[in-house]
Design a protein around this nucleic acid. Structure first.
Length: 261
DNA sequence: CATCAACCTGATCA
DNA sequence: ATGATCAGGTTGA
């Protein structure tokens, strides 16, 4: 499979991967996975279920044609693609992705990672050095320990989300076959999920590649490079029209534009 | 619908 | 050293 682990796992879309020496170590389900880059893909240790990994990396995505289509829509984007070769949008488990992005509001990448590891260490199962992402039941059973995770005002939202999944009020898997619009609409009903987080989840978990999450950084790029400013709705609409059905991939490319002076 | 202060925490900067 | 400001936003007024 055509993939570059560094850009895919290090770009901030997933928060449980650490680069150790030459390999990426992470947790998928109840397994600690180690991935090592090879010329035409990667070697995988830690699971017998190869399909699990392939699905996680959305191996069906034809990177060449996606990149080509992004490049065609925009000259600036096409100039950025070379530095992102092999970057794949992931397909992260729904429940876990939503919970993670509830924590991701108004915090930098480093702190998000610290919060996520914190809840895993506090509530999850010890897999030998790494911890599984806790189930709603595991969280609720020990919810008094939530303060140890130092989530700040996100703590209540995190617990409330776990509760809603536990009691069936919200079913992450039920959004599996919904359209992008329906998906976002449902996600927005979760406390702690606003338009940006909903787009992240729609893109990184439900595979809606037209989703275009706009954080502060992307907002700067849109302003400086495209001269557009305004509400989230306005910017998102502009982006989807401009970048088309793979706007989510274009967003990843633009995310790296910030580093160029 | 648009605007805006408040919000936990930890890191960075004056 | 101690205080202000900001960081992958959302909420409620």
């Amino acid at each position: 499979m055509d993939v570059d682990l560094d850009s895919t796992l290090g770009c901030g879309q997933a928060h449980r991967w650490h680069k150790v020496d030459d390999s990426w170590e992470g947790v998928l389900g109840n397994e600690v996975i180690t991935l090592t880059q090879t010329p035409d893909g990667f070697e995988c240790e830690g699971t017998d279920d190869e399909n699990l990994i392939l699905d996680y990396f959305r191996h069906d995505d034809d990177l060449d044609s996606i990149y080509e289509e992004c490049a065609r829509s925009d000259e600036f984007v096409s100039g950025l693609i070379d530095r992102c070769r092999g970057l794949r949008i992931l397909r992260q488990p729904h429940y876990e992705c939503i919970a993670t992005y509830i924590l991701a509001t108004n915090a930098n990448v480093k702190r998000i990672g610290a919060m996520v590891e914190g809840v895993c260490r506090t509530f999850g199962r010890n897999l030998g050095g790494r911890y599984s992402f806790p189930t709603p039941e595991e969280i609720l059973a020990k919810k008094d320990l939530i303060h140890e995770c130092r989530l700040g005002y996100r703590a209540d939202r995190f617990i409330e989300y776990a509760q809603s999944v536990h009691d069936g009020t919200f079913d992450p898997d039920a959004l599996e076959s919904t359209s992008y619009e329906e998906c976002v609409e449902a996600l927005l009903r979760i406390k702690g999920v606003g338009p940006k987080v909903a787009d992240c989840i729609a893109l990184f978990s439900y595979g809606h590649l037209e989703a275009f999450p706009i954080d502060a950084r992307i907002g700067n790029v849109l302003r400086d490079r495209y001269g557009v400013e305004g509400s989230y709705k306005k910017l998102a609409q502009y982006a989807r029209e401009r970048f088309g059905r793979y706007a989510g991939y274009a967003q990843e490319f633009l995310y790296h534009a910030d580093f160029i002076e």
